[in-house]
């Protein structure tokens, strides 16, 4: 690696390999940039905007912007975390995120990121949308009340599992949704398997393996033990 391949992240020098995004370089250096729709195994699409940073004073999604020598990147500033908190609040009111009854609580990236940003209230008026629960599959259930449309299941099913079980469909704030690739529209009628990559990719509590929901009790889960910033930086 040449000496020039360095940028500043919150004032700290970060080395990068040519072609790496700011997010990838930060992760390699064990630095946490908040994110929801980004996953190291898949191509970034910059849609959740949680990973927005300021690059030489201009906003950019750190998961899609390539690292370049001499960039001055602001990440965990009060200004950016305020904006991230607002994005999270919008996500919370758009779906039905009722944490007390959710099997994913404590392991949920949305919840953990909201804790990290100190979100005390969803602030906006709730939509309380009417979204379906699909328990048709013998080993996996889907609760779309919690979907944040990160599309990681779509990517995992298409690219890792070669199955295309999930597709993004519909339009608009209330119409956009994940559609199941079967005539009935039910997961049970697809070739989805509990061993698929897509079965364990969901960052929130939509795709849930049956019969294991409370094997690990509340209070002893990933983000109960350490905040998401520490968990991510340790990766």
């Amino acid at each position: 690696m040449s000496e020039q391949n360095i940028f500043l992240l919150d004032g700290e020098e970060i080395a990068f390999a040519p072609g790496q995004t700011i997010m990838q370089a930060a992760q390699s250096a064990h630095k946490y940039i908040p994110h929801l729709c980004w996953h190291p195994e898949f191509k970034p699409h910059g849609s959740c905007k949680l990973c927005t940073v300021k690059i030489n004073g201009r906003f950019g999604s750190s998961c899609t912007v390539e690292a370049a020598a001499g960039q001055n990147v602001e990440n965990r500033t009060a200004e950016l975390d305020d904006k991230r908190r607002t994005l999270l609040q919008l996500l919370f009111v758009e779906g039905n995120h009722f944490c007390p009854s959710c099997e994913k609580s404590g392991d949920c990236l949305l919840q953990a990121t909201a804790y990290e940003m100190g979100m005390m209230t969803p602030h906006f008026d709730h939509f309380y949308p009417d979204r379906p629960v699909d328990a048709s599959h013998p080993d996996v259930m889907l609760d779309f009340n919690r979907c944040i449309l990160c599309s990681l299941c779509v990517q995992a099913s298409e690219l890792a599992d070669k199955k295309n079980v999930f597709v993004m469909g519909g339009r608009g704030m209330r119409g956009r949704k994940i559609i199941l690739n079967s005539e009935s529209g039910k997961l049970g009628d697809t070739d989805f398997s509990v061993d698929d990559r897509a079965a364990s990719i969901c960052p929130v509590g939509v795709i849930l393996k049956k019969r294991v929901g409370f094997v690990v009790p509340y209070g002893e889960r990933t983000y109960d033990k350490a905040p998401v910033s520490a968990v991510e930086a340790a990766k």
């Binding site: 995120h97 009722f98 007390p100 009854s101 309380y128 949308p129 009417d130």
Partner: peptide, 18 residues
């Protein structure tokens, strides 16, 4: 002070909202 999930976001009773 809004205290607890129900005061903050409607909580369990709000599960009837749809």
């Amino acid at each position: 002070v809004a205290t607890g999930a129900c005061a903050v976001n409607g909580g369990l009773p709000a599960q009837r909202n749809h």
